[in-house]
């Protein structure tokens, strides 16, 4: 964490090239090698700098055609680390090049974990939460704000992630593990993500009972009583029920269809 070294002019240019080359990671996503083609192309700024003859360049491109998969938004951090390793490999003939792919494989899992929960799980949900209420009021600002809230942090992480990855190079995993940064980030993201999802569940899942009990002459609408004890209890229970079914291994599409069936049947027989 103490690496405060300033980047040289050429290194800054390299960082910009890595940033711009990183966007097409999933252009040819496929089952066989997943994001490999895009990743290999993203390594070109480093490869063309460090290797001057055709054979070495080919060897490096081929090396990065190994199967690869991570969250697209955070890929430059791994590209940055791999770049630092390629630099070392090009300068030091005794460097074992197998290490490069090993480190990449070691990084892509954790980064997919952090990236997915940060970008898909947290940032996107916050952006939806804010954009959605505007869209529901019929304001065009809704989708615009949604895209901005997501993509401004996205672009910052994409650029500075590359710088971060490059600076720490080989040491990133050791240092990050020692100071527990990875765990801290992922734990923090989980807490924020869960709270936001909880809040959105409360505001966006609607389920009200239309049951009315008649005791003597008095009509008792069940929903009124539920609201006094625990408002929104039914949406909470339903969401937890869905979570339980998913945990039990039921397919998402199945429970979608089940939910539609429950909605239709429930409203036909008049309980919801």
């Amino acid at each position: 964490m103490s690496d405060k070294r300033k980047l040289t002019k050429d290194e800054k240019k390299l960082m910009r090239e890595i940033f711009w080359s990183s966007f097409m990671l999933e252009g040819s996503y496929n089952y066989e090698r997943q994001q490999a083609l895009g990743f290999s192309i993203g390594m070109w700024p480093a490869i063309k700098r460090y290797y001057k003859n055709e054979k070495d360049r080919a060897e490096a491109l081929e090396r990065h055609m190994n199967i690869f998969n991570t969250t697209p938004h955070v890929v430059t951090t791994i590209t940055g680390v791999a770049t630092a390793l390629e630099k070392e490999a090009s300068e030091n003939p005794s460097f074992d090049k197998k290490i490069i792919n090993n480190v990449k494989i070691g990084l892509m899992g954790p980064f997919a974990g952090i990236g997915d929960s940060l970008f898909w799980g947290t940032l996107r949900i916050i952006a939806v939460g804010i954009g959605l209420s505007l869209a529901q009021q019929g304001s065009i600002l809704g989708p615009i704000l949604f895209l901005l809230l997501f993509n401004v942090p996205h672009m910052l992480v994409r650029y500075y992630g590359g710088v971060f990855g490059y600076k720490f190079g080989t040491k990133i995993m050791d240092q990050a593990n020692n100071s527990g940064i990875m765990q801290k980030i992922s734990k923090g993201a989980t807490i924020v993500g869960l709270m936001v999802i909880g809040a959105m569940t409360a505001s966006m899942v609607t389920l009200e009972s239309s049951l009315v009990f008649t005791i003597g002459d008095e009509k008792i609408p069940m929903q009124d009583y539920l609201d006094q004890i625990f408002p929104l209890l039914l949406p909470l229970l339903y969401t937890i029920f869905m979570f339980y079914l998913l945990k039990k291994g039921m397919k998402p599409t199945t429970i979608l269809l089940v939910t539609i069936a429950i909605g239709i049947i429930g409203s036909l027989i008049g309980i919801i």
Partner: peptide, 16 residues
């Protein structure tokens, strides 16, 4: 029924 289901369906999304 679809309208009711529309209110319930986000639960599946959040559960996922």
């Amino acid at each position: 029924g679809l309208e009711v289901a529309g209110g319930l369906l986000p639960a599946v999304g959040f559960a996922l």
